[in-house]
Each structure stands twice: as C-alpha cells, then as structure tokens.
Write a protein that binds this DNA or RNA. Structure first.
Lengths: 190, 190
DNA sequence: TCCACTACTTACACTTTTGTAAGTAGACAC
DNA sequence: GTGTCTACTTACAAAAGTGTAAGTAGTGGA
C-alpha cells in the first residue's frame, strides 16, 4: 500500500486535528482509533504508534482543545496593537461565543476535564484590568467579568437553542447581543 | 436467581434513573447496558427487553434528562402561590445554575441533542412577561432574559471552573452573584 | 550507496459490548 | 388451582474496539 511518511510531530498534529473534526461532526463516538485512522487514510495501529493507546489520543485531544479554546480568543488581545479596546474585547467575545467551541467545551466538561488547565492567567487578568480601570478589583467588577464570561460560554453552548425557543432568527442577533452586553457592563463604551 | 418483578413502566423508569446516576458519577462510559444492569441488579438482556437496543436506552435518557432539566426549574414558578416574584425567580436561577444540571446538559449538547425539545413555552414566556411587565417585549428586555438564561446555564456548566481561575472560593459567591444579576436586570428589585 | 532509524503496514488475538434464543418465574384473571 | 401473560433469567453468538508482533518502506545521514 502506498505510504505517506510524516514526521512524528506532523503525524500527531494531523491525527489530533482529524479527531477534533470527527468529534464535532460525529460526536464522541467518532473519536475511536479505527474511525480516526480511516478518516486519515492510515491503518489504525499507526494511531497507537503515536499515542500508545486509545485513551492516550483522547488525553492529547483534551489538552489540545483546551489550549485552542483559549489561544484562539486571547491571541486577539495580544496581537491588537492598540491594546485592549472595546473593539478587541468584542472580537474576543465573538470567539468565546462561537458555537463551534460549544461542542468541544461540552465534551471536556462531560468527561470531567478542566476547560482551563494550568494556563497563565494573562487573558482573564487583562480583561479584569480593563474592567477595573486600574482602581483595583471590586466584587462588582468581578461579577461583571463573570457575567460576561458565563454568558458568552453559555452562548457558545446553547445560544442557538435559546434563540430558537424565543423565536428569534435574526442572523445579526448574536452580534447585537454581544454589543449590548458590553455596553451594559462598560457604560462609557457607546 | 431471586427475581424482582416490576411493571414495564416501573422498570423503564428505574433503568433510566440508574443510567442518569451513572452518567453523572462515571461519565458517558457509564451508560452501557451491562453497567446499568449491574448497578440495578438485573441481567443485561432485561435492559434490552425494555428498550430494544443500547441506543434505545440512550435515546430515552436524552428525553428524560431534557424534561427533568426543565420541569425541575419551572415547577417552582408554577407552584409558588404568590406567583412570579423576585424570590421565586431567584429560586429558578438557583436550579438553572446547579452544576448537576451542567453535566447532563453537556451530554445532551455534545451528542447533538436539543436541550429544549418540543415543550410548551410556558416557562420562558412567563419569565418574559415578568421582565416586560405587560408592556410588550422589547429587544432590550429579551436581551436581559437571554443574558440571565445564558449566564445561569454557563454557571451550571463551568461556574466552578471560572471561580477557580479567578481565585474565588467563597461558598456563598454563586448565590450573591445570582442576586446581583437579578438586581442588574430588574433594577427595582432591591 | 549503504545504513540506521522509525513511521507505517498487515495479520492476528483479545476484551468489551451488544444482541439473540430459549426458557423460567412472578403476578393477575378466572 | 389453572392458565396466560410477560418481566426476567441463563447461555451463547456476533460485532466492535483495542492492542500486539513482525515485518516493510520512506528519509536522512555517513
């Protein structure tokens, strides 16, 4: 059989990427070494070669997803030359609220994983600083931060479902909702 | 072997209850007919007898969980003789935000299930009425409702994780947060 | 060009999970 | 009591999923 040879690093990355895709498209039962190997076009022992055992792959997938979820959103803050602005915050919220994140997050949670493992607190801390405007953190401001985070994670998980129940099918509603929320918690941001 | 005989209805209810318990305590891999049968003290074909196949059980479990999630919270509104009050709303939020719901919800979502299937809109509609105070529903008020719902579902799913990241370990914090949130969206409720 | 390394293959074995066939026993009707 | 119904049992079979052993084929270095 024609064989494609990757570096170990490439292979591991590709396997995880495909496993993540299967998780999203087929649900948890798509994350099996035989299924992943099939989707990737390799034999299933090739997967075992790189991850040791089936749970090894899942473990690596947990890690990668939790990293992606964070990096994806926070890289915006780090890369915006103007620093933290209302616009960049809004972009962060958009990423946080992305329904694609929802399924991944749900998988982590239902498997008892911490969705925020051992990362630097950079992201939360900087948002916090924005909200507290250098005056030190009050309970009020912390609640605002939690509200925004929980609402956006809630949005990613079941925003579409809630809108369906409320009979809303305006495509721009999620964006409007995010903007409304930012103005609610940062009043001077009109 | 000593045999306990239930009605078909009782058996199905008991099986689902035990399966739900296993889902919470052992995660998705606990929901297998052999495991459920063991926990219930029957042979595994007994499960198949009532649900046809393994997926039949899971399907029934999806249904039951989505019903329970709703009924649990909304029965408070329906049973409170004073009608909808700030206190009863707060009790609803507490139920919505219960971490036990989180795992169940996550399981529904990661398996592509609608967490709010085909139920009467009673619950949401009555909360909506409370927020709109009979004046008809504005976008502002709908956003407030969505904010509360999404934040509380977010809380149920990962409130504890977010608090851990922010270094909060005050046990009464979730309750305080809920009260703060209600005052934020219903200003006259101090 | 040869060699070492290892990403990958095929073939097989094992375990886990699901499903089936046939029969057993508890409850209810008469 | 006798009989019918069906919730449940045991025993077996099939399938799915995982893991192992041994060998093959790319790739990079000498």
């Amino acid at each position: 059989m024609a064989r494609k040879r990757r570096t170990a690093e490439q292979a591991r990355a590709e396997i995880i990427e495909i496993a993540a895709g299967l998780l999203e498209s087929e649900g948890p039962s798509g994350v099996r070494i035989a299924r992943v190997a099939e989707a990737m076009g390799v034999s299933h022992p090739a997967i075992l070669h790189h991850f040791g055992c089936a749970d090894g792959l899942r473990e690596a997938l947990y890690r990668q997803i939790s990293i992606d979820l964070r990096v994806d959103a926070l890289s915006i803050l780090e890369n915006d030359p103007r620093g933290i602005t209302i616009d960049s915050l809004e972009a962060v919220l958009e990423r946080l609220a992305d329904p694609k994140n929802g399924k991944m997050m749900a998988w982590l949670l239902v498997n008892g994983r911490d969705p925020f493992p051992d990362a630097g607190e950079q992201g939360l801390a900087s948002i916090l600083a924005m909200l507290s405007q250098g005056k030190g953190i009050s309970t009020e401001r912390r609640y605002k931060l939690m509200l925004v985070l929980l609402a956006m994670y809630g949005e990613s998980l079941l925003g579409d479902h809630v809108r369906a129940r409320l009979g809303v099918d305006d495509e721009s509603d999620p964006a409007n909702f995010r903007r409304w929320l930012l103005r609610l918690v940062i009043p001077q941001s009109d």
